[in-house]
Design a protein around this nucleic acid. Sequence first.
RNA 1: GCUGCGGUGGCGGAACUGGUAGACGCGUUGGACUUAAAAUCCAAUUCCUUUAAACUGGAGUGGGAGUUCGAUUCUCCCCCGCAGCACCA
Length: 963
Amino acid sequence: MEKYNHNKIEAKWQKKWLEEGLYKAGEDKKKEKFYILDMFPYPSGAGLHVGHPKGYIATDIFARMKTMQGYNVLHPMGWDAFGLPAENFAIKNKVHPRISTDENIATFKSQLRKLGFSYDWDREINTTDPKFYKWTQWIFLQLFKKGLAYESHEPINWCPSCKTGLANEDLEDGKCERCGSEIEQRPMRQWVLKITDYADRMLNDLEKLSDWDNSIKEMQKNWIGRSKGARVKFKIKNLKGGNEEIEVFTTRPDTLFGATYFVVSPEHGLIERNKSEIKNYKEVREYIEKAKKKTELERTDLAKEKTGVKIDGLVAINPVNKKEIPIFIADYVMMHYGTGAIMAVPAHDERDWEFAQKYNLPIQQVVTPNKKEREETIKALRCLKNLKKKADDKEINFWLLGGLAAAFYVGVIWRKHNDLDLIIKDNDKYDDFLKIIENEGYKKIKDKKTEDGFISSVYKNKDGVEIDIGPYLGISDLRDKDFEEDIKELEGVESHVLSCDFIKKIKDKQAKSRALKKDFLDKKYLDGYVFADNGIAVNSGFLDDLITFEAKKEMIKWLEENNLGKKDINYKLKDWVFSRQRYWGEPIPLIHCDNCGVVAVPEKDLPVELPEVEHYEPTGTGESPLASIEDWVNTTCPNCGELAKRETNTMPQWAGSSWYYLRFIDPSNDTALVDKQKEKYWSPVDFYVGGAEHATRHLIYARFWHKFLFDIGVVNYNEPFKRLQHVGIILAEDGRKMSKRWGNVINPDDIVDKYGADSMRVYEMFMGPFSQSTIWNTNGLVGARKFLDKILNLSLNIVTEKKDNQEIVSLLHKTIKKVGEDIEDFKLNTAVSSMMILVNKIAEQKEKSISKANFKLFLKILSPFTPHLAEELWEKLGNKNSIFKTKWPEYNSNLTKDKTAEFVVQVNGKLRDRLELPVEIDEKNAKEEVLKSEKIKDWLKNKEIVRFIFVPGKLINIVIKDA
RNA sequence: GCUGCGGUGGCGGAACUGGUAGACGCGUUGGACUUAAAAUCCAAUUCCUUUAAACUGGAGUGGGAGUUCGAUUCUCCCCCGCAGCACCA
């Protein structure tokens, strides 16, 4: 028997593919394109471990299948090579980062080559290549010209160990993501990109990205963190009667009447401006100093007791009732969210409440969940009858809007294909309504989740007509930020007052619902404790008796009319701090001129190349090492020609990766970032695969830049990545992340050497669901190898002229179908398993062989997984051309259908027998057959058959009872 | 705390729109081959009951309820794990 010499086979084909240029992407416009992309790696000095290629293997399989299916596939690879590790290595070893980076790239590339990937290496890019970063700088200049890059001196995150400023996205738990040092806040000159201008669009467009992993979309949503609310101006009065105005942001303008004190964060400018008027300035100053020393982590520790100092000598005026309220300085208010100042409403905010308890401040309740008020406002609630046609299905909706004071309960009932002539006048008739439905012959068949996530019940009558009944908006919905839109939908519909108590209904239905327990049944909320949810306004002048949602609207209206505030949206997302005080990054292409201010480097002078330096060490002064290179820094102003200085800050590592995918389309273009026609053909990326750790960094930044490039007409589509799939990491055998630190790294080179690249490819795909993290197990890898051995053995038994067993042929075609579908869905583990089943079945046969024609079909579906082995066996069968130039097989749908099937026979739902029957058998014949079964006869002795359930092609269930 | 995802044999995991739970792989046990071991091949492998063996029966997808002829799948409550965010006003 010939031995499977993977080393020989793999080297042979890798060489051949390269020589033949098999994987060059063409510009054949007649073919449909497919752009499949991996997140390009940072070529670290450690090289790859076995976890890294997982995603690359998967995209390679996908790309190979797409190519065979006739697509023009773009599947490139490159290097995200700017960054701190190379620079730190340079500092330590006095080697230019260029050199170590190039070495690392060479290592990475050879490691990837060994795995047999189908990358088009002619399109390789490297973010540190001046020809590449020329265009990174170019994009920055466009941002600058559009006013989206601005200079700021605000305090920012500063890493004392890396000696550079950092963006919010570069922090992890308040620490530097790279080195783990505690972050300080440090005011310094910096360049900032106005990403917040795009926040709304980035948030809204997430909904269009239907082929993105949900988890990543959620993370981005949270990161952008939009909250709707209002800005409110508070007058600040000092002892001398002097005035100034400070704005606060609040999501609860309806609680303004309950604002009993005012808080500014320690960094707020108010203190210094009124220094002389503050009687206890010394005490205040001490507090500020203390707060400064605290790390971000200490300050945001939730378990910590709140502290603060009252500012003696200043008071704020609550604009709505003109009351004077005390001002505090407290570090539970953060300078970086909202305006750095808040109105404190202790009755309805847990933090304010805690603080008020400690410092004995007045607590004024202005929202109530109480039953009494609730009943009063019930008057305001409407019961709506809405006949709304849904275009698609002729559905008719009945809206029931009733409610609790603090919650609406809306029932939506619709009926398909038939007009339902019921008018619900009052919603205490809800039970009656259900009775009507039941009297009409409807029976509840199941509960289901609506698109909005609520539960509705499906009722069905004898004719198969289905109606859905259920809460459309549940209790929690008043808290929903988008409630407004839902209400709008209901407006303009005939309504009338109702007089029901829905609590009982809901108690019955959702007795244990957490929302109810917390908001309405829990006594503590009824006794004036913190009630942070929505309810009814009380003690609030013109807002009294309004529900929160309406009260907010009214208050905003009032604020705007009196010029005391306005509707506002606040984002958690902050502008992108874009400058780094380090060497190994793209120089920011700006010039500082005494006469003209900040001037852009003319585009014809790009790229501004990184100069050679002797010392890479960061200076720590807020200037990068570039600042000391005089003949580089000193230049002339392109505007006035006078002497001027270059900007010495460099860009963050995320700059190049924010647009690199566009460059693959046209990697060597000197005159444009990307050729318009080519961009139009290839863009957007159809499928993007990479780690979830990039959800709130790279993927946010890239979407921002892409939208900007769309706005200035460089790209034709407003989202960069159509489908996104995240790859689950591979953990070491000890369950930890693979890392030098733990000494548990497995090098793919060793695995490839010992078991072969194909084995590794199959194993990594077989391990488990692609997006899930799994633990590496070398034994499992042996299993994959055995599978390949079996295939090789099988190939030795090929019979040219042979009529294969019908069963095998049918299974083969089922497998072709499944493998194709699974690859498309990225269910690569089950694709592998289905091929294993096929191979096992063939080997189980007496003759252990298969015809040449059918084996060829199998090789084709196998080939994306094990390109080397497949190509070798393909050649052995006498084929001259590469298997990857052949067409992906089509399955014969007649062959995937079985003629007979094993029917499961149940009695009262319990499995009692199995019968081989024709698939197409009808209920009557099936019943006859089943009743012949001895086993079943036994079970039916002395019983009466109540029901006979028949599922075509699958199952028979006999429901019996005692006769 | 909030948001999202998940919980199935000894392990990784499979199961279409509710219809045979445990596919496939690993591990383990027994057997074949061998002087022996490795490799390979064959068989068994959820648990309990029963048995010489088998048949048979019962339980079983984190726990508890519910809907259904039938639930890993749908609904509600609870528990646990993972990930992200977090004094977000």
